[in-house]
């Protein structure tokens, strides 16, 4: 019994030392230069930010911005043949993967907030969302107040989950809150009639709606309960790399390139099914394009 415990202790220690191992790495730029490779993290189904198209290529708004950053790294380090390594990440493993060096930068749909800033660094904001509701047009639900006593689905681990739980407690609304594993499952819960509404980032709701069997049956409603800033995630305390990333993003935003990319992903037909999200640019997004910054909203 004793040896079993010792062994367990040894194993746990080997786990614990892992993140510390990564500390010995130099700056990200040095790592990129030495290996002639940049490791990018991307999402698999965050439509239209970062996802696989029908040829299993990673595409999307955030992905395109990330490739602009790669171009800047190439130019800065004078690495014409810089290799790109793509690693899909999930909301559960993205922070450890950035920390342990598997991924150098992740642009997807990651919210910049105070808790995460303790673990990782964020670039200038690339998008701003509001948390709203996706409901059936015929449901008669117009805002959060109409949800009392109903089933509401949201995706586990998101700000929406916290907000709706808090709302439920504060206003004693008697909602049943279902936390689905990912957006796809959450939408399925809504589509099969298990929940009356799906609370999530409005841009992602537009993406889920585009996948529906009858997109015209659904509508996004409700006063935004919060605003959130999406940023690219990098390792902490690496000012040289962050400066390069922010500089590249600022150039793209100033030149009008960012606006073109926005129109391409939010106002035009997108793969895999050629649907148009018709999601006009919000004042918040226009502002960050005008005045790039890396402030979190929370």
């Amino acid at each position: 019994m004793k040896s079993r415990r010792l062994f367990a202790a040894a194993l746990v220690c080997s786990f614990v030392s892992c993140p510390i191992l990564a500390q010995e790495l130099g700056g990200t730029l040095k790592k990129i230069k030495d290996s002639n490779t940049i490791a990018l993290g991307h999402r698999e189904s965050s439509i239209p930010f970062s996802y696989y198209d029908d040829k299993q290529q990673v595409v999307g708004y955030s992905q395109e911005l990330m490739l602009k950053v790669v171009d800047a790294v190439k130019a800065d380090l004078k690495l014409l043949n810089l290799q790109i390594k793509l690693t899909p990440v999930t909301s559960q493993n993205r922070i450890p993967l950035v920390q342990n060096g598997t991924v150098d930068i992740e642009c997807g749909s990651t919210t910049n907030n105070a808790e995460r800033q303790k673990q990782v660094a964020f670039s200038d904001t690339i998008f701003v969302i509001g948390t709203r509701l996706l409901v059936k047009k015929s449901s008669g639900i117009g805002d959060f107040a109409d949800l009392a006593g109903k089933n509401v689905v949201t995706t586990a681990g998101t700000t929406s989950e916290r907000l709706i739980r808090k709302l439920n407690e504060d206003r004693k609304m008697g909602m049943n809150i279902i936390s689905a594993k990912d957006h796809g499952e959450a939408f399925l819960t809504l589509e099969t009639g298990r929940a009356a509404a799906f609370m999530m980032d409005d841009a992602l709701l537009a993406g889920e709606m585009a996948k529906a069997r009858h997109p015209a049956d659904w509508v996004i409603v409700g006063t935004p309960q919060s605003r959130e800033a999406y940023g690219c995630m990098m390792r902490k305390d690496d000012p040289a790399f962050k400066k390069l990333v922010d500089g590249a993003l600022a150039r793209v935003m100033a030149s009008g390139e960012a606006e073109r990319i926005y129109k391409k992903w939010f106002m035009s037909p997108i793969p895999p099914k050629g649907l148009n999200l018709n999601f006009p640019m919000s004042e918040d997004v226009a502002q960050i394009f005008k005045h790039p910054n890396d402030r979190a909203f929370e």
Binding site: Y51, H183, E185, L188, E191, K273
Partner: peptide, 9 residues
Amino acid sequence: KVGDRDGRL
């Protein structure tokens, strides 16, 4: 992944 992407889980 295919099911999630196309809404056909």
